[in-house]
Design a protein around this nucleic acid. Structure first.
Lengths: 334, 334
DNA sequence: TATCAATTGTCTCACGTTGTCATTATCGGT
DNA sequence: ACCGATAATGACAACGTGAGACAATTGATA
């Protein structure tokens, strides 16, 4: 592989001048610079990053430890956001699929230490508390947090998501929302419930009784109790005019349940949700109106934090916004 | 950061002996080894990968250039499979989201060259032909192929997928399959159609007229024409007893269309598909019987190829198999 | 011609690791 | 005690880059 010495020989110049050109030292004459640059381009020389890392004692590498990238497809956007920022700043990202607390985590951290990575981002597939990893590396928690709050953290503002969604529903004239929430073991579910109740209170309503737990815990993914709940509620005295699903994946069984009950989504009852899971939310019929979870932005913020000099344990909440489709019609037409 | 010299000083031994311990050289006396190892553990020393790379002139890094990781969630399994193999072999994988032919691709290849990566895997989100990237690096094409066939390639065996699915349907007594295929611009769609017709021919049937194009081209993702087609076909003289969807995402609008037609999936007509997209296929009601696309295995095979000494342009086809749920009932009950 | 600035070159070291080769310690056999 | 053999350890160089110190060269200007 060509090195700077080869370039110097070909350009009939000194090693030092080549080094100057590569490191954009302004002291070099434009003609010389051009001549050397041409040779660099011709030979396809690329500086040896290993040597640079060793010499400069810095590595330009940030680790991204992702718990179960596979399970939630939206978590990919965390990766994308982080990576886009990293590359824009000339940094490299190393991705590791891990399972928290298992060997895969230790190994990933060891590998990153080998590469003298400057920081690592630790992402989970859903919003929850985690034990801190044992590492000296600067760490940013993404979509998760530690109990002690000693680490920089980037989270979705689930309280805001719940609040703003309900506020919008009430503004549009809906009066009997029913929240089919995820299991309360999930931090996001608890926060959204808070926001849900708060938005009701601001409108002079007590919505605290309008929440049902409609999914099994995180250990039993995608087990929903929507049939049982809807069979009761849609025939009950306080029949909901809008259903709020804990996530888009839950909205799918909700659609099926409503059809079985002979009810039309958007006509007999509106349906909303959280995630904006692509392309599912768009492909459902009618299209699902849902609060977009800002995973891409969260990934960006986390990487910015990882690359910043700031070492304080900042806690950053990223907001989401409503994506409108047809499952939430204007109240007049419902 | 501690280095081998520090360890040597603390252990009152030479640099070389420390190096031997770290590289598990059996020449070292057990007593010495233990003494040095203890110091290594105490200090938390980790070898500097940059120095190792420079000294040994190899890098243990493989690049994974992924086109649009985000769009198709199944393509994550390509990443997972590749990564699992890489880590099992003590290699590191660097992931890059790129757009083919654009600056992001060139930059990714340049970064990998900087790190003196030994190989790169180039993955697309759907099976298709690609122009070869301009690089000297050993390249493995994953889920895509070059026209000249000059590069090692790992592809899903789409012909087998189409063939085996139809063979199984016929075996179960279905006689009027209708293939709602993806756009013929997609290589996978063409191959599955071949397999579809071939399996029919083997059973003495001419299925060549039983294929409809039900999706727009790759540039207009997730636009399906299933309503128009099904409205005609389900009322026509050759009413299908089983529908084969081009992908699980298409099965979703198919379900909705059938419901609108007052038909019950699994009862009035069976539905099958390709992908086994999680968790969608499981959450649809009834659960979707679908040919699993072996993305995880493809990722594994591609990484094995990337890490192998073999430089010949092998073309490896990875097979998939049927995942049974309730949308394809035993013929007797349909 | 003297002076100065701009440019280029020489030389040296440092980063952390590992391969080559040399040296020292130990042991068995005589 | 001595030899040879083997085991164990050590000294040193080199990988490619970047930087500092400073010398040398060129060209322009006073």
């Amino acid at each position: 592989m060509t090195n700077q010495r080869d370039i110097a020989r070909l350009a009939k110049t000194s090693l030092k001048t080549v080094s100057r050109v590569i490191n954009r030292d302004p002291l070099v004459n434009e003609v010389t610079r051009k001549r050397i640059q041409d040779i660099i381009d011709q030979t396809g020389y690329v500086p040896n990053e290993a040597a640079r890392m060793m010499r400069s004692q810095t590595s330009d590498i940030v680790g991204f430890l992702s718990e179960d990238v596979a399970t939630t497809s939206s978590s990919i956007d965390l990766v994308r956001g982080a990576q886009d920022v990293a590359h824009a700043m000339g940094k490299q990202m190393m991705l590791f699929n891990i399972r928290r607390g298992e060997a895969s985590e230790t190994e990933a951290l060891a590998q990153l230490a080998r590469f003298r990575a400057g920081a690592c981002i630790l992402a989970t597939s859903f919003h929850r508390e985690v034990p801190l990893p044992r590492t000296d590396m600067k760490t940013v928690l993404l979509n998760c947090y530690d109990a002690a709050g000693e680490t920089a953290t980037v989270l979705p503002d689930d309280r805001q998501l719940g609040h703003d969604l309900v506020q919008e529903l009430l503004r549009r004239g809906y009066r009997r929302p029913l929240f089919l929430n995820l299991a309360p073991e999930l931090a996001g579910a608890r926060l959204r419930a808070e926001g849900f109740v708060a938005a009701g209170r601001e409108a002079g309503m007590d919505l605290s009784g309008r929440i049902r737990t409609a999914s099994a815990g995180p250990d039993r993914d995608h087990t929903y109790y929507v049939d049982e709940i809807l069979t009761v509620e849609m025939a009950g005295p306080e029949r909901p005019d809008v259903l709020i699903c804990g996530q888009d994946l839950m909205a799918l069984p909700v659609y099926f349940a409503l059809m079985r009950l002979g009810l039309s989504v958007g006509k007999d009852v509106a349906v909303t949700s959280f995630d904006n899971l692509q392309p599912l939310a768009k492909l459902m019929q009618p299209g699902l109106t849902t609060m977009d979870l800002p995973y891409y932005d969260m990934g960006r913020v986390a990487m910015q934090q990882a690359l910043s000099e700031n070492d304080s344990p900042v806690r950053q909440l990223v907001q989401g916004q409503l994506v409108e489709r047809d499952s939430l019609p204007a109240k007049g037409t419902a």
